[in-house]
Design a protein around this nucleic acid. Structure first.
Length: 856
RNA sequence: GCGAGAGUGGCGGAACUGGUAUACGCGCUGGAUUUAGGAUCCAGUGGGAUUUCCUGUAGGGGUUCAACUCCCCUCUCUCGCACCA
């Protein structure tokens, strides 16, 4: 009988679906295990990255289920977002239709891969039954002051025709359009107060021991907490003061000028009527036209302009000039800095350029430092000089002392500062969750009353050809009445950032149909937190930071009790493949290359670097084609076998053949021997075995131990699979050996074990073979096999014999031998005697059960 | 520049607390079977040397009876951050 994956996989998939085998509900008697993979954007087709991500998850889910856990393993759709709008304009369809068609296609593909999802929990975030609760959460946050609106400088992506959050800007470009530079616009935007949780998010980083260190490091850097002080510098000839944030209060006596960010509101105020006014305004305008990336890049020269005004150093009373400088960031600290050119390299360069004097206030512990000798700033630790009452103190000690002094004089205070900004969620897009706010001329900004939720996104609109949102042009949507005064009012036409949907979907999976609120407390409390989350490293900051914030905010709104959503996080590597390039046609798809030549022009094809699979590089493999050719089990197995999950996976068509061959070997192992195997039951450990079958029985237990440890401790499925391969090889060897002791019960035990151990990886073939072996019960319902340490014990142990650390011989000794006896046997060994060659023995090291090293 | 991680056959990768380096798979070589191809099965496969030896985990040094593994230096690559005051 031939291995026919298409037929048998269809059989088991329809069985699982019919039986609703993976449907779960809360069960207080069982230990829960919530396993989650990042849900996909419904782009239309699954790609290899999805296959890898979801296969890793499925193996864990099936394994945990066999270990007796109550496993929640849901799937759904991150269904709002720009691609739907673009596709709709291109194909003259509607985003909703496009999205639901894609969902249908991708659902079919996921089912074809045999993933063990509880499909009854599936939802799409573009469904009002989902986003209505998001709108409610928004309103609850608004009540608590966690949502607010402000006019500010925001990142604008021309291609998105929309605003972006800080996290969504990479190297000055949009995270979606990495070739499109983000510009700065001043706009009204809604913000979520993630900064209110900055400290807690940061503190909890220490408790997330199940997360990769580098993800936590990235988050910590992004939050960017620093300890310092705010110091007030009174402006000369004014009753106002400039607040400056610094972490170097110890250098306060060395301040020789101040710099403001070009956006700083005081700039316009202090230059009014001065001869410098025109120059300063021109400078500010010029700098603001430069986008943020270029402005803050390290190749951009520091420049500034004197405002004509001075302020007073609060400790020396000295008057120091105020400059506006391009390198001062408006949204970090207070948007103003005190400059200490003697002890800060940036300030040093700036001072040199504009002829501003230096003042040394820290000297090295064992030498002196003079301004005129300096050609760079002195930034190391040292002793304070020229610092009034603090002269002579070590600079680190003076940090606190100077702050206290300032506090006593009311000139400043100790503070911490964060790099993290509030999360701007307004998007000038159509295909997103409407922000439930109404603007009334009389009553101002008014939240939509709860009873009027959801604010439904109208589906009968035509998209605008320039890509902009049609909502501001649809009176049926934006015209409304004020809930307070009943007068004419206008709806907010911006929608929410789609990262809002993905910040709480994992909580909604616990109660997807709940109609009384966003979350059913009982169910959330049972299932949350997610025990294991799996996804790409690209979400290290964006999605994972937002989700942590949301969970804490939902906790404080009373919706759940936990503080962190994900106990363990696995960030899987990318799926890579070599690129192929034709001199005439550029990048080529794999099928456009025949025998190393371009099918279009027959020119020789150049093989390029191995990089992440992407449509733009055309180095993609369509999973569907592989599924059609080899079946789901083979595709699943190769994704796991090629490398451990956290590392990148290099795609290899030959490697897929290898996985397919292995499954065929397993198939034949059962089908070829089915007559003999059917006559016996699996060996149960009772009765004495002969050498060969004893070895196989031991190997069987060894394999259980290895596979269990590899899955349980580190998710290294590649080595788990290779262990099963070894077992299968050993069974075949025994069957091929000439000995007449076939010990069929032991063979049957080994075969059954291989089938079970393989089942999380290749569930279809495993079920089929299991049934063939005569069982009514399904593999998925079996308990994960256990091994017996006693079986692993062996009578004879292989001891490696070394002379001077080099392996010279190997002997077998009874396991009962002590060190003394092993040493004696080692010295008796012929080869060893030859290498000792009658030289005096200096030392003998015996490692029990392993080796003997003789030093001569 | 700062921070993190990595470097092992022709290739993907094993080697868990220092103890047989290269498990498993791919590829390759030879053989069997077959009309042929494919598939399958068997044997071999780090490099060198005419055979029971030398050498080998990016390079150099060190610790140790023993180092892919620990320490120091150098090189290369990947990722993240990068005027954060």
């Amino acid at each position: 009988m031939k291995y026919d994956p298409q037929k048998l996989e269809a059989k088991w998939q329809s069985f699982w679906e019919k039986e609703k085998l993976f449907k779960v509900r809360e069960d207080p008697l069982k230990e829960k295990y919530y396993l989650l993979e990042m849900f996909p954007y419904p782009s239309g087709k699954i790609h290899m990255g999805h296959v890898r991500n979801y296969t890793i998850g499925d193996v864990i889910a099936r394994y945990k289920r066999m270990c007796g856990k109550n496993v929640l393993h849901p799937m759904g759709w991150d269904a709002f977002g720009m691609p739907a709008e673009n596709a709709a304009i291109e194909n003259k369809t509607h985003p909703a239709g496009w999205t639901f068609d894609n969902i249908k296609a991708m659902r079919t593909q996921l089912k074809r891969l045999g993933f063990s999802y509880d499909w009854d929990r599936e939802f799409a975030t573009c469904d009002p039954r989902y986003y209505r609760w998001e709108q409610l959460i928004f309103l609850k946050m608004y009540e608590k002051g966690l949502t607010y609106k402000k006019k500010t400088f925001v990142n604008w992506c021309e291609k998105c025709q929309s605003v972006l959050a800080n996290e969504q800007v990479e190297n000055g470009c949009c995270w979606r359009h990495t070739d499109n530079e983000v510009t700065i616009k001043e706009m009204d935007s809604w913000f979520l107060k993630i900064t209110a949780y900055a400290d807690e998010i940061l503190d909890f980083c220490e408790k997330l021991s199940g997360w990769p260190k580098r993800v936590l490091t990235m988050q910590k850097n992004w939050i960017g907490k620093s300890y310092g002080a705010i110091i007030k510098f009174p402006i000369a000839g004014s009753d106002k003061a400039i607040d400056v944030f610094t972490t170097r209060q110890d250098t306060l006596f060395g301040v020789t000028f101040l710099c403001l960010a070009p956006e700083h509101p005081l700039v316009k105020e202090i230059i009014k009527g001065l001869p410098q006014e025109k120059d300063v305004l021109e400078f500010v305008e010029r700098i603001l036209r430069i986008d943020n990336y270029v402005r803050t890049a390290d190749f951009t020269e520091k420049e500034g302009v004197f405002t004509g005004r001075y302020c007073k150093n609060p400790v020396t009373g000295e008057e120091i000039p105020i400059y506006v400088a391009n390198f001062v960031l408006f949204d970090y600290g207070t948007g103003a800095i005190m400059a200490v050119p003697a002890h800060d390299q940036r300030d040093f360069e700036f001072a040199e350029k504009y002829g501003i004097s230096l003042r040394v206030v820290i000297k090295p512990p064992d030498s002196d430092l003079r301004e005129e000798d300096m050609n760079e700033a002195y930034v190391d630790e040292g002793i304070l000089v020229n610092s009034g009452p603090f002269s002579g103190e070590r600079n680190l000690k003076a940090l606190d002392n100077i702050t206290e002094y300032l506090e006593s004089k009311g000139a400043g205070f100790k503070t911490t500062n964060f790099r993290l900004r509030d999360w701007g969620i307004s998007r000038q897009r159509y295909w997103g969750t409407p922000i439930p706010i109404i603007y009334c001329d009389k009553c101002g900004t008014v939240p939509v009353p709860e009873k009027d939720l959801p604010v439904i996104l109208p589906l009968d609109l035509d998209l605008r050809s320039n890509g902009g949102s049609p909502l501001p042009f649809d009176p049926l949507f934006y015209e409304t009445t004020c809930p307070y005064c009943g007068g004419k009012a206008r709806r907010e036409t911006d929608t929410m950032d789609t990262f809002v949907e993905s910040s709480w979907y994992f909580e909604r999976y616990t109660c997807p149909g709940y109609e009384q609120g966003p979350l059913d407390a009982e169910k959330v409390d049972y299932w949350m937190p997610v025990d294991q989350y799996i996804g790409g490293i690209e979400h290290a900051i964006l999605h994972l930071l937002y989700s942590r914030f949301f969970t804490k905010a939902l906790r404080d709104l009373g919706y759940l009790k936990i503080s962190e959503p994900f106990i363990k996080l696995l960030t899987q590597g990318m799926v890579c493949k070599e690129t192929k390039k034709c001199p005439g046609h550029g990048y080529l798809y794999p099928y456009e290359v025949k025998d190393g030549r371009c099918v279009l022009c027959n020119k020789e094809v150049i093989t390029g670097a191995t990089v992440k699979m992407s449509k733009s590089k055309k180095n993609v493999v369509d999973p569907q084609i592989l599924i059609d050719r080899y079946g789901a089990d083979t595709v699943r197995m190769f994704c796991l076998f090629a490398s451990p999950p956290e590392k990148d996976l290099e795609w290899s068509d030959k490697g897929v053949d290898g996985s397919y061959r292995f499954l065929n070997r397993v198939w034949r192992l059962v089908t070829d021997q089915i007559d003999e195997l059917s006559k016996v039951t699996a060996y149960d450990g009772k009765g004495v075995l002969k050498d060969e079958s004893k070895a196989l029985y031991r190997k069987t237990h060894l394999t259980i131990k290895k596979v269990t440890a590899d899955i349980e401790n580190r998710f290294h499925f590649n080595t788990a699979i290779s262990a099963v391969m070894e077992l299968v090889n050993e069974i075949n060897q025994l069957l091929n050996s000439k000995g007449d002791d076939k010990a069929w019960p032991v063979v049957r035990k080994a075969v059954e074990t291989a089938v079970i151990l393989l089942s999380p990886v290749a569930p279809h073939i495993s079920e089929e073979l299991w049934q063939m072996l005569g069982y009514e019960e399904k593999v998925i319902d079996l308990a994960w096999p256990s091994y017996n340490e006693e079986v692993l014990e062996i009578e004879n142990r292989l001891i490696v014999l070394q002379v001077n650390g080099k392996v010279r011989s190997r002997i077998e000794v009874p396991a009962s031998y002590g060190k003394q006896e092993i040493e004696e046997k080692a010295l008796e060994d012929e080869r060893i005697q030859k290498f000792i060659n009658k030289k005096p023995i200096k030392r003998i090291i015996v490692v029990q059960n392993k080796l003997v090293n003789i030093v001569v």
